[in-house]
């Protein structure tokens, strides 16, 4: 009788309605969000390399930041953009914001509204930062920019002639940039920046990608890519490095760390699912062997 009961529980667990699994995941994410549970992640070597590259560039260096993502991956990519921009402007670098994705220019606008205008009001448009926006062409666009930057970017986002901005005067090709940072979530993205700009143009490329893309980019590090942030965890690691070096950002640069709270609890729930799923599988297998 007891054996039968045990079997029934195993069978039930194995065939549990997936909607209960959905419910548990939702709870695992909602509770830490409501309780504001945050966690910080020490910086890994690959993220630290990107941080060090920006840190080591002399003030006034030109950094091209490409927004190659859309609303679907904002929770992962936007904290990266925020952290990198804070760091670059803190170091007095000049930043150029562009996009390979049509949705990217909305994200760069969000960065401008929430970070640049609020935290760096003294930085001058066209001198310290510029919004170039989106252009069609995917990897073809990178190929164009490598030989003729102003062939595509004839104006800035608002339609003003590109040569009317002091920071654009000396830009002829992508080779005039000291660093390219591709923040992406698919094609075209960081990979295409390496293939079509970094390698042929010998330009340092760094990046930030969604966690899905991150494992695929490891073969490029460190020879073809100076460093990169993988997913929300990568963004949180960059925040950690930034706050460690510049403690004044401790309160502001926390988006990734805050959203890492739900991430941690959801991971634990999924780990529990995997363990439970395997226990039921092993018990079921043992039972089948026994009755064979």
């Amino acid at each position: 009788m007891a054996e039968e009961e045990k079997l029934t529980i195993i069978e039930r667990l194995g065939a549990v309605d997936r909607r209960y699994v959905f419910l548990l995941i939702a709870i695992a994410v909602i509770i830490p969000l409501v309780l504001h549970y945050a966690t910080s992640i020490p910086t890994s070597e690959i993220v630290q390399s990107l941080f060090d590259k920006i840190e080591s560039l002399p003030g006034g260096s030109r950094i091209l930041i490409s927004f190659d993502y859309g609303p679907s991956t904002v929770p992962e990519n936007q904290p990266m953009a925020n952290a990198v921009t804070r760091h670059a402007l803190e170091k007095s670098h000049r930043i150029y914001l562009m996009a390979l994705w049509p949705t990217g220019s909305r994200q760069s606008q969000q960065l401008i509204d929430e970070i640049i205008k609020v935290e760096f009001p003294d930085k001058v448009y066209g001198v310290d930062w510029i919004h170039l926006g989106y252009k069609a062409g995917n990897q073809g666009l990178i190929n164009t920019l490598l030989s003729d930057f102003k062939g595509m970017y004839t104006t800035d986002m608002s339609g003003k002639p590109i040569d009317s901005f002091p920071m654009m005067k000396d830009i002829r090709t992508l080779r005039d940039f000291d660093l390219i940072i591709g923040l992406g979530s698919g094609f075209p993205g960081t990979k295409e920046w390496i293939q079509f700009a970094g390698d042929p143009g010998d330009i340092p490329v760094g990046g930030g990608t969604t966690a899905v893309m991150a494992p695929l980019l490891y073969p490029y590090y460190p020879k073809q890519m100076v460093g990169f942030m993988g997913g929300l965890q990568g963004a949180a690691e960059y925040e950690y490095a930034l706050v460690k070096k510049y403690p004044k950002y401790a309160k502001r640069s926390r988006i990734a760390s805050t959203t890492m709270g739900p991430q941690v609890t959801a991971h634990l729930v999924i780990v529990a699912f995997i363990i439970l799923g395997n226990i039921t599988y092993l018990l079921e297998r043992r039972r089948k062997r026994k009755y064979r």
């Binding site: 966690a211 993988g230 997913g231 991430q263």
Partner: peptide
Amino acid sequence: YTVMARISLLTGRMN
């Protein structure tokens, strides 16, 4: 990493 990515997106929407 895929699990990590999907949870991040869900966190964004839940937030």
